[in-house]
């Protein structure tokens, strides 16, 4: 094998990672469900990146009101004639919303909005979790106690309630939405990382590193965290879906920067108002959320199978 040539530690790292990767690919090939998850999540990220190219990104605040609630989908007959008089002959695959915009275009524009918030929340939660959770687990004592009690406080309120209060107080905008969801999310990561570090730090190699004269930062962030982060990353993948669910739920109940904003929960909010006259308005945005979130959940499950040896059969 190529890696057996002595090239120093750089090639050596690649050797180990490559073995992991190979095993992961092998598992993926064997498991069609996980493969579906990978396909969905990769596709949704690609769609999010390309969406400004597919749909004119400014089209969401144009309102051709003559197309309100038009439904020209030939596949499903909802037995409801167009409630409003649809002008023009354009075909809208998923119908139009009450502002006269093509629902399909709005969904395509909405995916990057939701995914961006989800990635921001999860990435920040992981960073906070690794830093404070690692510190709490490694230092123990009063540091641990203090950090734990703070997470206790945040875990004693249902996340959605705290988020509602935060958004109302901080004002309605996408950044406050992100901050509100992050505020309810980070304690779980601190807890998770802490428990991982607690079990990892008892291993003899940590003691050996201390005897070697390695400092706390090097031991904690260079060794312990690297060895215990996989469960956290699995959780992060699973949580992409959950964050999208929470964010869309918040905008769905009306805590949105603008009712026009193409965001999946926001689009559904319009839908619930017309639920018995234009059901497609809630069906398709919600279905999009379901598919994306399912994709990331399947992906997370797959990653867990790869990295949790106990689940290997």
């Amino acid at each position: 094998m190529k890696a057996s040539k002595p090239e120093g530690s750089q090639s050596s790292d690649r050797y180990g990672r490559r073995a992991d990767l190979k095993y992961a690919l092998h598992l993926l090939r064997r498991n069609p469900i996980v493969l579906t998850g990978v396909a969905i999540s990769v596709a949704s990220v690609l769609l999010a990146l390309l969406s400004p190219l597919i749909v004119n990104p400014t089209s969401w605040d144009q309102q051709p009101l003559n197309l309100r609630l038009c439904w020209n989908n030939p596949i499903v007959n909802w037995q409801i004639a167009n409630v409003f008089n649809c002008g023009g002959s354009a075909v809208y695959p998923l119908g139009t919303d009450s502002y006269g915009r093509s629902l399909l275009q709005m969904i395509i524009l909405a995916i990057p909005v939701d995914l961006e918030i989800a990635f921001e929340v999860v990435a920040s939660a992981v960073v906070i979790g690794v830093f404070f959770g690692g510190l709490a687990g490694y230092k123990g004592g009063i540091v641990d106690e203090a950090i734990l009690r703070v997470t206790d406080v945040f875990l004693a309120i249902p996340g959605i309630l705290l988020a509602i209060v935060l958004i109302v107080v901080l004002g309605r905008s996408l950044p406050t939405l992100t901050i509100a969801v992050l505020t309810t999310w980070w304690p779980y990561y601190v807890r998770l990382m802490r428990s991982q570090v607690l079990s990892e730090k008892e291993k003899p190699y940590v003691e050996r590193l201390r005897a070697m004269g390695a400092g706390g930062i090097r031991i904690l962030y260079g060794h312990i965290v690297q060895n215990s982060i996989y469960p956290v990353l699995v959780q992060a993948t699973l949580d992409i879906g959950s964050v999208i669910l929470t964010v869309s739920a918040l905008t769905f109940i009306g805590l949105t920067p603008s009712p026009l904003l193409p965001e999946l929960g926001n689009l559904s909010n319009q839908g619930i108002q017309y639920i018995f006259t234009a059901p497609w308005l809630i069906l398709f945005p919600g279905l999009t959320i379901l598919i994306i979130s399912l994709g990331f959940n399947l992906l997370g499950d797959g990653i867990r199978d790869v990295f949790d040896p106990r689940l290997r059969r």
Binding site: G8, S9, S12, D13, Y15, G16, K203, P204, Y205, E207, R208, L209, M212, G213, A214, G215, R218, H223, Q226, N227
Partner: peptide, 20 residues
Amino acid sequence: ASLDPRQSIGSALLEPMKIH
């Protein structure tokens, strides 16, 4: 258990040299 499972032998040997 006394070796970091995710660290190559080379890197584990270089680490104490780096520290000191």
